[in-house]
């Protein structure tokens, strides 16, 4: 039995539950909708902005603000993809059909990554284009014909894909929906607040490693002085995902899957 047939099964499972459908709907509608709303606000108040901010204004990352909602949606989609198997108990039927646990973990990862990649890139490009259309005439705009801009938009989609993989990997480790989603949201939202309590000299070193900062670094056309380059940020997020996925897969192999939680 191959990874391909296991992945076919996971693809059927992935698209046949409402949590996926709802998660995707939230992601698409809110990201594009919120993006448009923010872009309209930026356009309306651009002339009030102080000159320095106007000078450093990045139309690329500004138009991609909407993806913040997507960051949460994709993590939840990823986490539920595995934790729902534990909460419903279907993990037993799944593992009876696919006893190779590493293969199972990989097949789910494959399905999640491919589908979220397509979806995230779609959302990123739409949000970006919509933003530029709203900005045009008042606010400086960017064009995909520029290599840097194109890379930023592609990386915005990549970042979302990696976050979905991170949510899924956390789910593998924690097995419970609420716990996985809490930890995921904490990494994105609470971690930066905790870092704020540290002395400034520490913050300068820590902040740039936060997932949200790495995401900013990946999707902005003009890297900030204190952050990583977009490629380095991509590498670091990938390492995060690889480590958590590795731990999750090891645990899946070691733990009993039969007894209910």
């Amino acid at each position: 039995m191959s990874l391909v047939s296991a992945s076919k099964a996971e693809w059927i499972k992935f698209r046949s539950v409402r949590s996926t459908v709802m998660g995707v709907a939230v992601m698409v509608v809110f990201t594009i909708g919120l993006g448009a709303l923010i872009d309209t606000a930026v356009r309306g108040h651009y002339h009030e902005m102080d000159p320095i901010r106007r000078l450093t204004f990045d139309p690329v990352s500004a138009s991609l603000y909407g993806t913040i909602v997507a960051q949460f949606a994709v993590g939840v989609i990823g986490a539920l993809f595995i934790t729902s198997e534990y909460s419903s108990g279907s993990i037993r039927a799944t593992l009876a059909a696919v006893p190779g646990r590493t293969r199972l973990a990989l097949s789910k990862l494959l399905v999640l990554t491919l589908s979220l990649f397509v979806l995230s890139e779609f959302v990123s490009f739409i949000t970006f284009q919509l933003g530029q259309t709203i900005f045009s005439g008042v606010v400086p705009t960017a064009s995909l014909s520029s290599g840097v801009v194109l890379r930023s938009v592609i990386f915005a989609g990549l970042f979302l894909t990696l976050l979905a993989m991170l949510g899924y990997s956390l789910g593998l480790v924690l097995r419970q929906s609420a716990a996985s989603i809490s930890v995921y949201v904490s990494l994105l939202l609470i971690l930066p607040l905790i870092v704020l309590a540290f002395p400034q000299s520490w913050q300068d070193h820590i902040t740039k490693f936060e997932p949200s900062q790495l995401g900013q670094a990946m999707m902005s056309a003009t890297p900030s002085a204190n952050g990583f380059s977009s490629w380095t940020a991509l590498l670091i997020v990938t390492i995060y995902v690889a480590v958590v996925f590795g731990v999750g897969t090891t645990l899946l192999n070691r733990r009993d899957a039969g007894a209910s939680q």
Partner: peptide, 12 residues
């Protein structure tokens, strides 16, 4: 095998 009949995702 049939282990636990209710161990199926309820939304599927």
């Amino acid at each position: 095998a049939l282990l636990d009949a209710k161990a199926v995702h309820p939304g599927r």
